[in-house]
């Protein structure tokens, strides 16, 4: 273990470490603490210059309620759900198929196709922007939740295929081999044998894609115009314009936007990190 385990050090060093930890964390998360404190203060505090001190009054319920009453934050949040959940299902489902095809079968195109998926995952969004927007306009999918979901699912397929393919590749190939010898059909092998084994990969991808899509701002700006389909990230920017210098409300809305991915992360931390550190653990 590196660095030297602290429990082998003197008592002084140990106490010092225990003391530094919370201080370091406090500084690291200071931006978040500040925005949280602001979201529960009365507007008068901010005008009086009390930005980082203790709020003169705790208005948590009032401020957060005001965000919902005075803006369309509720609708934006619901739109985010309507965009994120179907995308996760669609893209993770499809990547099980592509990942399986590219890992289990040895055919000439397996590596080139795999590399195309990987490369596509890295391209800058802007190179896709004009044609994708054009395609959406022409097919009537512009400014609809469906249009955004279809694009997101297609784009995330690059990353998901990379992940799935490597995951399935690491499974013992003899399992599939022996099932084939027993005469089990290819789809049955996929459905009954491989799919139950890739459950951890499905979980990891689901939380990760959930966070990516929930936090997407660029494509929401490009493909959505109206409030009826605007997700919360783009909505927060709209609110920022609406609540000019009402920082307590802007802060509350921002934190609301951050809650679902944060909850997701804490609930499924192990899977989340497994997804994120893909390849990093390979010796």
């Amino acid at each position: 273990m590196f660095p030297k385990p602290i429990e082998n050090s003197s008592a002084g060093v140990r106490t010092g470490y225990q003391l530094i930890l919370p201080v370091a964390l406090f500084i690291w998360l200071l931006p978040l603490l500040a925005i949280f404190l602001t979201s529960i203060r009365p507007a008068a505090d901010i005008n009086a210059g009390n930005i980082f001190g203790i709020p003169s009054d705790f208005l948590m319920v009032e401020n957060y309620l005001a965000v919902f009453q005075q803006s369309k934050a509720g609708m934006y949040l619901w739109n985010s759900v309507r965009i994120t959940i179907p995308t996760v299902i669609l893209t993770v489902g499809l990547s099980c198929l592509t990942g399986y095809a590219l890992s289990v079968y040895r055919f000439k195109w397996a590596i080139p196709l795999f590399f195309i998926f990987v490369a596509g995952n890295f391209v800058p969004f802007q190179i896709l922007m004009v044609p994708v927007r054009d395609l959406s306009v022409n097919t009537g999918l512009y400014d609809t939740v469906t249009g955004l979901v279809l694009f997101h699912a297609a784009f995330q397929l690059g990353f998901c295929t990379l992940f799935m393919r490597n995951f399935i590749k690491a499974l013992p190939y003899e399992l599939i081999e022996s099932a084939r010898i027993d005469g089990v059909g290819e789809f049955k092998i996929f459905w009954h044998l491989v799919l139950p084994l890739v459950k951890p990969a499905i979980a990891a991808l689901s939380v990760l894609i959930f966070t990516f899509i929930w936090n997407d701002f660029f494509w929401a700006t490009v493909l959505i115009q109206g409030d009826h389909a605007l997700p919360i990230t783009a909505g927060v920017r709209a609110l920022n314009g609406q609540f000019v210098s009402q920082w307590h409300l802007v802060s509350a809305a921002s934190l609301l936007a951050a809650v679902p991915p944060v909850v997701m992360f804490f609930a499924m931390q192990k899977h989340f990190i497994a997804g994120l550190t893909l390849g990093a653990t390979k010796g």
């Binding site: 499809l94 198929l97 095809a101 079968y105 699912a153 397929l157």
Partner: peptide, 23 residues
Amino acid sequence: PWLFLLPGLIFFFIYVIAPIFQS
């Protein structure tokens, strides 16, 4: 493998690969 790949591949081609060249 092609049957497994088809839905994903078509999707990815329409929304990611083709737009690069169109751009």
